[in-house]
């Protein structure tokens, strides 16, 4: 039987760009170029490796996001995923993690799955909680923050390097896995992969197809509210000295003056 893998990928503003908020205090997605979150490339990579080891597997990449988010799906398809689902609806604008996770969970259930793979966190929101929430919503084991992952005979195993210990984990499929950036460099799409991706199916679903009411998502349906966002004042320019043989001593003098010594 075929192993059905769904990989959740997010389209995010480039972290090296000048990221801003819009007037309604949502992430400004217009003025900075978007891309497939680098941390989700690791998820796609692990899906491809797991699929390689399986007798028969199919990888679906899934995103919830605006029109441009198709770029993220294309990139994942060109890396080697088989097909893509884009959940897109005007009412989704401003969704928080609870709303987004609801949509993802419904879409994953509709798509059908044995294994869901996500990145460790998105590079714009950086909450890192969506994987745990998805596992809760789907009612499947969460095998998260893995730096190593393997699937064999319907069982997923992996290593989680936690704060105080490194743990070896095990769960039966269906399950949800999230992988860290320690799990192995993601491959670059080959020219062949890029050409092939153009012919791969990309389905578009809206909220109606997922039986979700518009007031369950978006700014309205979100369970958190941002009241203000202020740019931190640039740090005031500090003292910069060139080392002419006394740099270490000068620095020590500064630290002493600041009472660190």
């Amino acid at each position: 039987m075929s192993l059905r893998i769904v990989v959740c990928v997010k389209y995010v503003p480039d972290a090296t760009g000048d990221r801003q908020f819009t007037e309604d205090l949502t992430v400004n997605r217009d003025d900075v170029d978007g891309l497939l979150s680098e941390l989700d490339e690791y998820a796609v990579e692990q899906a491809l490796q797991i699929a390689d080891e399986a007798d028969d597997a199919e990888i679906t990449v899934l995103t919830v996001g605006p029109e441009d988010a198709k770029d993220a799906l294309r990139k994942a398809l060109s890396m080697g995923a088989d097909k893509a689902i884009h959940v897109e609806d005007d009412d989704l604008h401003g969704s928080d993690v609870m709303a987004t996770s609801l949509v993802l969970a419904k879409a994953i259930e509709k798509a059908g799955y044995d294994l869901v793979i996500t990145g460790m966190a998105s590079t714009d929101g950086t909450m890192g909680v969506l994987p745990a929430i998805l596992a809760e919503r789907l009612g499947v084991p969460q095998v998260t923050l893995l730096s190593e992952v393997k699937v064999e005979d319907g069982v997923v195993t992996g290593r989680r390097d936690g704060d105080s210990a490194s743990e070896q984990l095990e769960a039966s499929l269906p399950a949800l896995v999230s992988v860290t950036d320690q799990s192995g460099e993601a491959r670059y799409p080959s020219f062949k992969g890029i050409m092939a991706a153009k012919k791969k199916p990309v389905e578009s679903w809206d909220l109606e197809e997922l039986d979700i009411e518009s007031d369950e998502v978006g700014l309205e349906g979100s369970w958190t509210a941002v009241d203000s966002a202020t740019q931190r004042p640039a740090r005031t320019a500090g003292t910069i000295v060139k080392d002419e043989g006394e740099g270490g001593k000068q620095l020590a003098a500064f630290l002493a003056e600041q009472k660190f010594i």
């Binding site: 205090l25 979100s222 369970w223 958190t224 509210a225 009241d227 966002a229 202020t230 931190r232």
Partner: peptide, 11 residues
């Protein structure tokens, strides 16, 4: 990356 500071609430 800490270039903004936000204030938010659970609603």
């Amino acid at each position: 990356a800490a270039s903004f500071s936000t204030k938010s609430r659970v609603s």
